[in-house]
Simulated assay, not measured.
Amino acid sequence: MKDIFDECQFGDLKLKGRVVRTGTWETETEEGGFLSPAIFDRYEKIASSGTGLIISEIFALDYKDRFAPYSSSLNYKGFIKDYKIISEICHDNDVPILGQLAFFYYDDGDNQKAEANDLTLEGIRKLQAEVIMAAKKFSFAGFDGIQINMGNNFYLTRFINPYFNQREDQYGGSTENRVRIASEIIKVIKKTMDMHVSIRINPWDVRNGGITADESIAIAKELEKAGADSIQLTARTISFLYDGAEKNPFLVYVDRLIDEIDIPVILGGNSRDMASMNDVLNHTDVEFMSMSKPFVAQANFLADWKANGEGVSICQSCNNCYSKKTSTCFKYE
């Protein structure tokens, strides 16, 4: 019988549990971008509670990004010092940490909001270099890897989506071509750094002419071929599809994806209680499950679950933390 607190292997990383904490917004920084004591305390609680893997809050590439005011910064002068402390907190608790990179806009030097069809080859190289440099910064700060968010509705999500990408060069057209911008990034990171590379993708996006489940699986295969170490499922909120019987919106898709690729897949989507999570683990091929908002409501809830052998998150799924873009809970502060 599988359990959320099983020790297990996650690609090249050893985990002490199957629960992956995924960060979202960061609004508790101090002037200049420095981390506040509350952030260090949050990471200590999460890392010591029984979490298997931590994915950081979102980091944006550019201070002008749409979500930069609610994101962590890669570019303030205390970044290496602050995040070395964060990574050490995680490692002292035997928990690996990945830095999550997610940007909505891209400034190619000529256009602050250049989209997939606007980028020249020079602009693509500039973007790739900035993502690779972000991975190098994470490495300097002691992170075990990088997660590139190519899900939800972020920039690279749109770039690989045929709904948005009508390029006619080697970065448009086929699945392989549209994913090439990410494949080349992954290959450089894997060749030059000892870093786990995780990618977040959508299983579909319900746009006419957009990404279908078949296309999403083809994208995952291209990412695996390039050297990606793991895949995490996410989605645009309006894209959650239910089959009428399953509570988790991705269960209609995840077993098929797991069967098609040979790297770990993290199941995302509204997990809230230990019993149902263990039920999924034991009745599907799922090995890893992510949680986000429950950690905002109570950073160390997994410790109670582990001690009691059961538990339900106090998170009420009100979505205020996400929609209002804050790293604190509106009800449980």
Rank of each mutant, 00 (worst) to 15 (best):
D3R: 03
I4G: 05
F5I: 07
Q9V: 12
G11N: 11
D12E: 14
K14W: 10
K16W: 06
V19Y: 05
V20A: 02
R21P: 11
G23R: 06
E26M: 06
E26L: 10
T29E: 08
G33Y: 11
P37Y: 07
D41E: 11
E44A: 04
E44F: 07
K45M: 11
K45L: 02
T51Q: 00
T51S: 06
T51E: 03
G52E: 09
I54K: 07
I55F: 07
I58A: 09
F59G: 05
R66Q: 15
Y70S: 10
L74E: 04
Y76M: 14
G78I: 10
K84Y: 05
E88S: 14
I89H: 01
C90D: 09
N93G: 08
V95D: 03
P96N: 03
G99F: 05
G99W: 07
A102L: 09
A102T: 12
Y105N: 14
Y105T: 13
Y105W: 14
D107M: 08
D107P: 12
D107L: 08
D110G: 13
D110E: 15
Q112K: 15
A114E: 03
A116E: 10
D118G: 07
D118C: 07
G123T: 05
G123C: 12
R125T: 15
R125P: 03
A135V: 01
A135C: 08
K136D: 05
F140M: 15
G142H: 00
Q147T: 13
Q147E: 15
I148R: 08
M150C: 15
L156F: 13
R158P: 14
N161G: 11
P162H: 02
E168F: 02
Y171V: 05
G172Q: 03
E176G: 05
E176Y: 02
N177E: 04
R180A: 11
R180S: 08
I181S: 00
I185Q: 04
I186F: 11
I186Y: 10
I186D: 09
K187D: 06
I189W: 04
D194V: 08
I199K: 01
I201C: 00
P203I: 09
P203R: 04
D205T: 04
D205N: 00
G210V: 10
I217N: 06
A218F: 11
E222D: 03
E224D: 00
K225R: 14
D229I: 12
S230E: 12
S230I: 04
L241Q: 08
L241A: 04
L241P: 04
Y242I: 01
G244R: 03
G244T: 06
A245W: 09
K247N: 13
K247A: 11
N248V: 07
F250P: 02
F250E: 05
L251N: 00
V254S: 06
V254N: 01
I258L: 01
I261F: 07
D262H: 13
I266N: 08
I266K: 00
I266Y: 06
G268D: 01
G269E: 02
N270S: 15
R272Q: 13
M277T: 02
L281W: 04
F288P: 00
M289S: 02
S290P: 06
M291F: 08
M291D: 00
S292H: 04
K293A: 10
K293H: 09
F295S: 10
Q298V: 06
N300M: 02
D304M: 10
W305Y: 04
V312H: 07
N320M: 04
N320G: 10
C321Q: 01
S323T: 13
S323V: 07
T326P: 10
T328G: 07
C329N: 00
F330I: 06
